[in-house]
């Protein structure tokens, strides 16, 4: 692993750490969106009392940024969890099993994979009450085939190296071989990468839909997406209310993607 990759790993790791910390802490910070409004300090530039300035309604941007993590943090974790856990299991079984079991799982995965994700999410939002949790759940399910495909490829490669057979032959329980020897010992880098990716996708969908305004998080509750949406009414000389959350979105998504990739690469190097 090169020097730049190592620096990238540390930097992206720091971003992930900050987001995770904020996501854990945010729910415990008392915040009443209505009380935060104060029209005597509208669009203030960043200062000591308002580190990132205030928005059109005089609300502290830093505070809304922190509270905004609530909108995607738990849903993102849930989606990543669903996609990675179910996807890894399905992928391992699809790579290991034979006969009808394999056919059914492969067919189901292929079916899920043909659904266009965002379109399907919007369809679900049209029919059901659109909460971010629901969106994340659907996103997690729709990512199952993506995770399953990489895991399956890995399992098939291990199969052709007799890695799996050797463990079965040695007397290990096949469930234990799948869960421990394959998924835990061999596939964790893949799972880390995919989890980071799905988390980033949920942030993308949540902010995107919140930005568009009808699904996702509604004002006055803060979301990075609806904070960016203020761009529509902001005067050109006061860009920070949308610039700050937009930068946060970009930083977080690329941070998570980079962390997932670099950490996985490091893990794969170690396993190899």
């Amino acid at each position: 692993m090169g020097r730049f990759s190592r620096i990238g790993l540390w930097l992206s790791g720091a971003i992930v750490l900050v987001v995770v910390l904020l996501g854990v802490v945010a729910p415990f910070i008392p915040y009443e969106p209505a009380d935060a409004v104060s029209y005597d300090r509208v669009l203030e530039v960043p200062s000591v009392s308002h580190v990132l300035g205030t928005d059109e309604q005089g609300r502290d941007i830093a505070m809304r940024l922190v509270k905004g993590t609530e909108a995607f943090f738990l849903p993102g974790l849930m989606a990543a969890g669903i996609a990675v856990l179910v996807g890894a299991l399905a992928g391992a079984v699809a790579g290991y099993a034979t006969g009808p079991v394999r056919a059914v799982i492969v067919g189901a995965l292929q079916l899920l994979d043909t659904l266009p994700r965002l379109v399907f999410i919007i369809l679900v939002c049209t029919i059901r009450n659109p909460s971010v949790t629901l969106i994340a759940f659907v996103a997690g399910v729709l990512f199952i085939p993506t995770v399953a495909a990489v895991i399956r490829r890995k399992v098939e490669a291990l199969g052709s190296e007799d890695y799996i057979l050797a463990h079965i032959a040695h007397g290990f329980h096949s469930v234990w071989v799948i869960l421990y020897h394959i998924l835990w010992l061999q596939c964790w880098p893949i799972m880390v990468r995919q989890a980071a990716y799905v988390f980033g996708y949920v942030l993308f969908v949540e902010t995107g839909l919140s930005y568009l305004g009808d699904y996702g998080v509604q004002e006055p509750d803060p979301s990075w997406g609806n904070m960016v949406a203020q761009v529509r009414s902001l005067p050109p000389d006061a860009p920070w209310p949308w610039l700050v959350p937009a930068a946060a979105i970009v930083l977080t998504i690329s941070g998570f993607l980079a962390f997932g990739n670099l950490a996985a690469r490091r893990g794969e190097e170690a396993i190899r």
Binding site: H167, I168, G171, R272
Partner: peptide, 19 residues
């Protein structure tokens, strides 16, 4: 039974975990 019959695979590191 598997305890009593074992196999040495052609691929010498097939059941060795690198870590």
């Amino acid at each position: 039974m598997r305890r009593e019959f074992q196999m040495v695979f052609q691929n010498q590191s097939a059941n060795l975990h690198p870590k």
